[in-house]
């Protein structure tokens, strides 16, 4: 039904779509740079060619502003998709997404301390990233400790503590915003919460890229174990998988990688929830296939989402979470209804 050939074709098609999307994403924006010029600038930057003096503005838009931003969209889209797959496998819950374990609300507390009170001011532009990463990690540790039982992490407890702690963090964040000396703190925090790639620089890329690549490689290597885990902990034991240990590993991986993603992009909702499902509708449930396709699909999706965010209401930018929801919800519901998708049973 889902043959190896179809998988290769899908990978090639998505790979090509990704390259095209990236180029278009770099060319288009509030000021459109013609495709030929875009390719010329990119070529110059990549091969160390020369450009004329009057091309410097165009070049810096393409190379300093848009290229890192679009590439970050690739990394973040891919990362949220694979982490979504991993988290859904870890808690065996169709409604799970990378943020279900309180990571995003923890990160937003961290981000709020920066926005509202100027914490880590010495770090300049990196203050927000560092603070949200620390917040995400702190939240993960709290969830882990609260969900830990004698026999390991219980999936249901993980989800419940994650959801409960998220409320706690939101309360803390609201208080911080409320007492903030800066009047526009609320708006900044809201924008951050809905996700944005507006602050992307070349500097934002290396750590996030490394984290996402790590996640993809590790998860692909363990894809068959994830299949076994989906059968339930009892069955997993009988097939030789230590579900408790695997779940601990998954928790650590997803917490760190989600933290790294949130640090550079805020909390972009919906991608990590829905991309895994969309991919399963197309290629089936096997994690080896899902984890091959999900990063590509997520990357293409987020490049276009970010492009829409920039061009829909120029010169303002829409938060990404708004667009992921506006585009993703109808697409997902249509596909789900048409394909007789069975996640969660009849």
């Amino acid at each position: 039904m889902h043959s190896r050939g179809t998988l290769t074709l899908t990978v090639l098609a998505l790979g090509a779509a990704l390259v095209v999307s990236v180029v278009i994403g770099i060319a288009l924006g509030p000021t459109t740079v013609p495709l030929g010029e875009t390719l010329h600038y990119l070529g110059a930057a990549l091969t160390g060619g020369t450009i004329d003096a009057d091309e410097i503005t165009g070049y810096s838009i393409i190379w300093q502003v848009r290229a890192p931003r679009v590439l970050l969209a690739v990394v973040v889209g891919a990362g949220l998709s694979v982490i979504g797959v991993a988290v859904q496998a870890m808690v065996r819950n169709a409604l799970a997404d990378p943020f279900i374990l309180g990571v995003s609300s923890g990160a937003s507390v961290g981000a709020t301390t920066v926005v509202a009170f100027g914490a880590f001011a010495a770090l300049g532009a990196y203050a927000l990233s560092l603070a949200s990463f620390l917040g995400a990690l702190g939240a993960s540790i709290l969830v882990y400790l609260a969900a830990q039982t004698r026999v390991g992490l219980s999936p249901l407890r993980l989800v419940l503590t994650g959801v409960a702690l998220a409320y706690g963090f939101q309360a803390v964040m609201s208080v911080l915003v409320f007492f903030s000396p800066h009047g526009d703190a609320a708006r900044t925090v809201l924008f951050w919460l809905l996700g944005s790639l507006g602050s992307a620089t070349w500097g934002s890329l290396p750590i996030a890229t490394a984290a996402v690549l790590l996640a993809i490689v590790v998860l692909l290597r363990r894809s068959r174990s994830l299949d076994v885990l989906a059968m339930g902990d009892e069955t997993a034991a009988s097939l030789g998988v230590d579900a408790a240990a695997l779940r601990r590993g998954l928790f650590l991986l997803t917490a760190v990688v989600t933290g790294a993603i949130v640090a550079v992009s805020g909390a972009i909702g919906f991608v990590g929830l829905v991309m895994p499902h969309l991919v399963r509708i197309v290629v089936g449930a096997s994690h080896a296939r899902v984890l091959t396709i999900a990063p590509l699909a997520g990357a293409v999706f987020l490049v276009w989402v970010d492009l829409l965010a920039r061009v829909l209401v120029p010169p303002r930018e829409l938060p990404l979470g708004v667009i992921t929801a506006l585009v993703g919800v109808p697409v997902f519901i249509t596909l789900m209804r048409r394909r007789g998708y069975l996640f969660g049973g009849r």
């Binding site: 889902h2 894809s223 174990s225 069955t235 097939l239």
Partner: peptide
């Protein structure tokens, strides 16, 4: 083992579930 708990939410095919029986014998993917 055939366990009492045998519930999955993901729509694996019958073939895929049967093949998982090879898991303990296989190395890597």
């Amino acid at each position: 083992a055939l366990t009492q708990e045998n519930h999955t939410e993901l729509d694996f095919t019958v073939q895929e579930v049967v093949a998982l029986g090879r898991y303990p014998h296989s190395r890597g993917n």
